[in-house]
């Protein structure tokens, strides 16, 4: 069983949590403008990485808040836990160059937050 360090409640066993699949998939701003293929990409296509994987969990039996986890799908080792909207911690071996990528995506995430 995984031990997951909820950023709000601390370390708890996996049975308190529910899984939310791949993280950082932003709902399109204007779904009506998308082609069927783009909509299918958003709805169904997933990275399913072997190795470091960014995923969402919710602390169902605790604070009921969503957060992100960086976990290795080959060893189940959890590299990092971070709040929704927080900068992505780099995966092991990930070059600093890769850190630029999330920066490029950030505006979309921020817009979503601002919409609340």
């Amino acid at each position: 069983m995984l031990l997951i360090d909820c950023p709000y409640c601390g370390e708890r066993p996996e049975i308190e949590f529910s899984y939310g699949g791949e993280a950082h998939i932003a709902r399109p701003e204007n779904p009506g403008a998308l082609s069927d293929k783009e909509w299918a990409d958003f709805l169904f296509m997933r990275g399913n990485q072997k190795g470091a994987f960014r995923e969402r969990w919710i602390h169902t039996q605790g604070c009921r808040r969503w957060f992100n986890v960086l976990r290795d799908t080959t060893s189940h080792e959890i590299y990092a836990v971070y709040k929704i909207g927080a900068p992505k911690p780099p995966a092991p071996g990930e070059k600093p160059v890769a850190a630029k990528k999330p920066a490029a995506k950030k505006p979309a995430a921020l817009k979503k937050g601002a919409g609340k």
Binding site: M1, Q49, E55, T73, T74, H76
Partner: peptide, 13 residues
């Protein structure tokens, strides 16, 4: 098991 994995093992619960 709910989570993505390639590890050929899962959680005890």
């Amino acid at each position: 098991d709910a989570y993505n994995s390639y590890a050929q093992r899962g959680s005890f619960h």
